[in-house]
Nucleic acid binder design. Structure first.
Length: 718
DNA sequence: CTCACCCCCGTTTTT
DNA sequence: CGGGGGTGAG
């Protein structure tokens, strides 16, 4: 492969980054839409084909599985060969790989399990209960947060001073209990994956030397999102001979609340010398107005590394800013505009609605249903986090490893089989006293239980033994199929009214069929699959967006782009959120979030806010977001809902915006009052077409909103 | 053990 | 407002 194939369609700066001098480290400050993934993949291709770097000598780190998969695919296409063996993945999956390979040196057994946030929560909760720590004074979520935060900062329980204050003392108490429990049960949570693999390298010089020598090139994506341990991990692997190539954008750091350290990106410049910084400032995504408005907004932040994006794409349309009366008005505005875009030929999937937090989606969902526009809402639970899926996986885990106590706890009485809390407590105590697993304890304790409990318990034990024996020689998907039936899970979920749970279990079987196990990683097929479900909980086989309007939080929109973006809820106390507004560094992060949201848009951007919003069971008045004032008016097209100057006069039935859709016919006009023989009185919301085929959308007082053909409807215009 | 009711609380969540 | 979890009766 020759150089031109790699640099062909790159601009000067991208090309400079890709073919960067092999003898230095690099920090690529890549603005939104400047082609950062492309630079990263082409850089790797360049190293392999032009510098004869072996695939094994490259370590590439991303933050999401999606990004890793995408990069792997792109690179494989570019090189025209598979790159399976390459160390390319998320921090967590790479850390996991290290721990699996060197589990003895990490004080683990080969069967250690990954604990997800839910499992972690359950354990913390139980430990607090058992040790009478008052949940009302120390909410479980907060304690869990405390523990993870410490670990993300590379702080172990023994590093904390118990006498610092009462709060620390109590949190530390749980922290220690939790750590002991995890060590005892071979459990690793997400933060532990990172800190433990970091300690593994730190405490084993020979290992460290090996990996330092092996990884001649280390490439990191989204560097602004690294936390303290991740930074230290990278720094540890750097020995001065190998080269670091980092891509990031300080303006898009939106995970500070989770431990990400935006300053890592500046620390990089002093810790990894010699280093050169290259700025990618040409944006290939958005129109001039969108980009300039975003640039103007972000200049209100302090301590930026500084970079102003430009485009040669022309100004495009102005950004609409809509002042709605209420959240309903806002939703109607947004959805009617989407309707209009679709009528003009856009696909629903070209449109996205972005909001600050998930609860805001509902009102838009209702409006989309009303307009009969297909949509998809991202967020909430991931596939492998559904209860029914976790139940099934717990059976799988228990069958693979009878010592898996977390799995045992979950399914011992599910589906219910008469094993109550009392019995489970006895099993726990027995297991603890005899240093054995819950499953072994259950076997041994049977004889000293009341008959009913003993019978119930032995039927469970037999069930597990039976599935284990029956499926011993079966492959993964056959195992899962068998266990779903034998355990009674399928039966149990057959009663599910909506039926989606049973569907999900079937989908699980499909996913297990598609799972292709890599032999090289020392795990059994089942173990490999279980690890995958923890590390990539999306369960996406081939997530197709189809023809749906996309609704999601701004956080989950990072890295995506859409022709049309509706950024909603632009109100003080909502965005920026109430808890951020008085803390400058938090407000800055909110502003970056707003910047991320705006720069998702390619052609059309609409910002909106409601003067009055119904939230948490009460109506509140709000001011427009400060961010709106930080965007110069010249980029904006300000629109207000008319119909009377005061809110009291406002009639929800007339929500529709005369001023926004200024079309009218001789006869029909938006907002007009009509009467229908059957449906009664209503208001015209919208209409399309001409003459006899004109379709009119009417919101009727009694029967809701309908589209009617004007020539058949016999409407009486009042 | 299970169901029903009541009370509480309410950002963002790549792993 | 509404979902989740905790509690107490059957």
């Amino acid at each position: 492969m020759n150089l031109s194939e790699i640099t062909n369609d790159l601009n000067d700066k991208q090309c400079q980054s890709v073919t960067f001098n092999n003898e230095k480290n690099a920090l690529i400050l890549a603005g939104a839409g400047s082609g950062k993934t492309r630079v990263l993949t082409h850089r790797i291709a360049y190293l392999i084909t032009q510098k004869d770097i072996r695939i094994d000598a490259i370590l590439a780190v991303t933050f999401t599985n999606k990004a890793a998969t995408e990069m792997r695919e792109r690179l494989s296409t570019l090189l025209r060969r598979p790159i399976q063996s390459m160390w390319m993945g998320t921090f967590h999956s790479l850390a996991h790989r290290l721990l699996r390979t060197h589990y003895e040196k990490s004080k683990l057994t080969s069967g250690f399990q990954i604990l997800d946030a839910q499992d972690q929560f359950r354990i913390v909760k139980r430990l607090m209960k058992e040790n009478s720590i008052d949940e009302s004074k120390f909410p479980i979520k907060k304690v869990q947060w405390f523990i993870n935060n410490q670990k993300n900062e590379d702080i172990r329980a023994q590093d904390i001073d118990p006498d610092y204050n009462y709060f620390i003392k109590k949190n530390l108490e749980v922290f220690e209990l939790y750590e002991a429990y995890c060590q005892e049960n071979d459990l690793i949570d997400f933060a532990e994956l990172l800190i433990r693999s970091y300690e593994l390298l730190k405490n084993n010089t020979d290992l460290l030397n090996h990996y330092q020598a092996r990884f001649e090139h280390i490439l990191v994506d989204e560097f602004q999102d690294t936390n303290t341990v991740q930074y230290k991990w990278i720094k540890l692997l750097f020995n001065g001979h190998n080269k670091i190539f980092c891509v990031g954008d300080d303006d898009q750091s939106i995970y500070g609340w989770r431990g990400a350290k935006i300053e890592n990106i500046t620390k990089l410049c002093t810790d990894f010398t010699p280093i050169e910084t290259i700025r990618l400032k040409q944006n290939y995504r958005s129109t001039g107005n969108i980009l300039n408005a975003s640039n103007a907004l972000i200049t209100h932040n302090v301590n930026r590394m500084g970079k102003s994006l430009w485009t040669d794409a022309g100004n495009g349309e102005l950004i609409d800013v809509y002042e709605a009366r209420t959240e309903t008005d806002e939703a109607n505005y947004v959805i009617s505009n989407i309707q209009k875009l679709i009528t003009n030929g856009a696909s629903p999937s070209d449109c996205s609605i972005l909001y600050r937090f998930n609860a805001q989606s509902r009102i838009f969902e209702e409006a989309l249903i009303k307009y009969n526009i297909p949509y998809i809402i991202y967020g909430g639970l991931k596939f492998f986090e559904y209860t029914e899926i976790k139940d099934a996986l717990s059976y799988l885990r228990l069958i693979e490893n009878s010592a898996d106590n977390v799995a045992f706890e979950r399914v011992v009485n599910f589906p219910t089989r008469g094993i109550g809390n009392v019995t489970v407590k006895k099993i726990r105590t027995f297991a603890q006293d005899n240093h054995t697993s819950l499953f072994q304890a259950a076997i041994q304790i049977s004889s000293i239980l009341p008959t009913r409990a003993a019978n119930a318990l032995s039927s469970f034990i037999n069930l597990i033994k039976q599935i284990t024996d029956d499926t011993k020689h079966l492959n993964l998907s056959e195992k899962v199929t068998n266990l779903l039936n034998t355990s009674g899970l399928i039966m149990h979920y057959s009663n599910d009214k909506i039926g989606s749970k049973k569907e999900n279990l079937k989908k699980l079987i499909t996913i297990t069929k598609q799972y292709n196990h890599e032999q090289d990683n020392k795990m059994s097929e089942v173990m490999g699959f279980i690890s995958l479900t923890s590390l990539d909980s999306s369960g996406n086989t081939n997530a197709s967006i189809n023809q749906n309007v996309q609704l999601m939080t701004i956080h989950s929109a990072k890295g995506l782009e859409f022709p049309c973006v509706f950024l909603v809820g632009m109100e003080e106390d909502l965005f920026p959120s109430r808890q951020s507004k008085n803390e400058p560094h938090l407000t800055d992060e909110e502003r970056r979030l707003c910047y991320v949201g705006m720069t998702r848009a390619m052609k059309k951007l609409s910002l909106s806010y409601a003067i009055k919003r119904f939230l948490y069971g009460q109506s509140l008045y709000a001011y427009p977001s400060r961010f709106l004032n930080e965007i110069p008016s010249k980029y904006l097209n300000k629109i207000k809902a008319k119909f009377g100057a005061t809110i009291q006069n406002y009639n929800d039935d007339n929500t529709f915006n005369k001023n926004i859709t200024p079309k009218s016919d001789d006869q029909i006009s938006i907002g007009a009052l009509v009467k229908h023989a059957k449906f009664g009185l209503g208001t015209v919301l919208n209409f399309e077409g001409q003459g006899d085929s004109t379709r009119v959308q009417i919101k009727f007082k009694q029967v809701g909103t309908k589209w009617l053909i004007n020539s058949y409807a016999n409407l009486e215009f009042i």
